[in-house]
Write a protein that binds this DNA or RNA. Structure first.
Lengths: 181, 181
DNA sequence: CCTATAAACTAATATCGTTAGTTTTATATT
DNA sequence: AATATAAAACTAACGATATTAGTTTATAGG
């Protein structure tokens, strides 16, 4: 990871993605803002680089979590990795979310890779084809929804969030078995 | 709804929340930007007003969808209303998401109202107390996750999204019955 | 040592949010 | 109706931002 991306990630995770500006980034690097144009194509270009880096990290975490596991074991492990990633890198995760106009091929590929991890695990349940796609969408919705609501402080009530994750995954996994046949 | 908020909602839904600036809003209203300060407290104030208006609308839709329904019927109806709202008002929905620093009392109350709609419906399953809170978090995660991924174009594969909603809700509702006892 | 490439710089411009102070418009009170 | 008050518009100006253009410095490779 380049020094510049690392600095941008630090700002994003500490202060939020919107705090990553050419001004703040340049200040952190002891550089003048225009110098950054030698490394990426302006603020939109930086956002794309951040998204790519974030998706690569996320993909790595999820793949690692899925190795040697199947069915519920794999799902719990992947879910853990997903939520841990967002907790550790809230700003970087924000950068990975599809933004209008981001049609970079590398982003498409990374997104597809991540979806593939889910569908592979669902195969271990015997879920394939369209059902696997629908179920993957459900799982991604659940994980992204929880992680992003948590990151924004959307769960006001002071009740253990890890228990909520466990319970909602349990619900989903019980339900998933009704899709198999 | 005031003329100003309506104009801001139009911009947000058409071009995204980040396109709602004092400059674009003033232009749409044939006004100079400083005049807007007579109506709200700068851009942060406008954001809060948008969030309040959006949450009021969302709460109304969800309440209306839940009237006279119970169990799965109520959940499907609420989910429909939730996703329909985000599809109709993607920018306004974005404005409703908790933002750092937004500790306005009205926002807290509206958020609490919306959570209450879910927990009331879960009562019709016999789910109460902490279980109701955990399950509500799961449902909100599922709906918010799906709606926001859909809004951002996060589902690349061209496979019917409404079927995905039905299937993931079915999965969750089958699983929910394992929480009851 | 010279040259070519990368990466920094300064200077300048347009846009945005914001503040201050002023003027116009609308409302309400006598 | 005339006037006082409040609401809402305006102009002018400032600081911060992204961006472009043109220039200078550093760094490698031959």
């Amino acid at each position: 990871m380049t020094t510049i991306i690392k600095a941008a990630v630090d700002i994003a995770d500490a202060l939020g993605l919107e705090a990553v500006t050419l001004a703040t980034l340049a200040k952190k690097l002891n550089i003048r803002p225009p110098s950054l144009y030698n490394h990426f194509d302006g603020l939109p270009g930086l956002r794309i680089e951040l998204a790519i880096h974030g998706l690569e990290e996320l993909r790595g975490s999820l793949m690692n979590a899925a190795i040697g596991r199947s069915e519920d074991d794999a799902i719990y492990s992947i879910a853990d990795a997903y939520i841990a990633f967002v907790r550790k890198h809230p700003g970087l995760y924000e950068a990975t979310l599809p933004a209008p106009g981001n049609e970079d091929d590398r982003l498409q590929q990374l997104g597809s890779d991540i979806v593939h991890i889910f569908t592979r695990v669902l195969q271990s349940y015997g879920i394939e084809g369209d059902a696997a796609i629908h179920t993957t969408r459900g799982l991604r919705s659940l994980l992204h929804g929880f992680a992003s609501l948590e990151a924004k402080g959307g769960f006001g009530i002071p009740l253990d969030l890890d228990v909520s994750i466990k319970q909602m995954l349990h619900i989903f996994l019980v339900g998933i078995r009704s899709v198999k046949e």
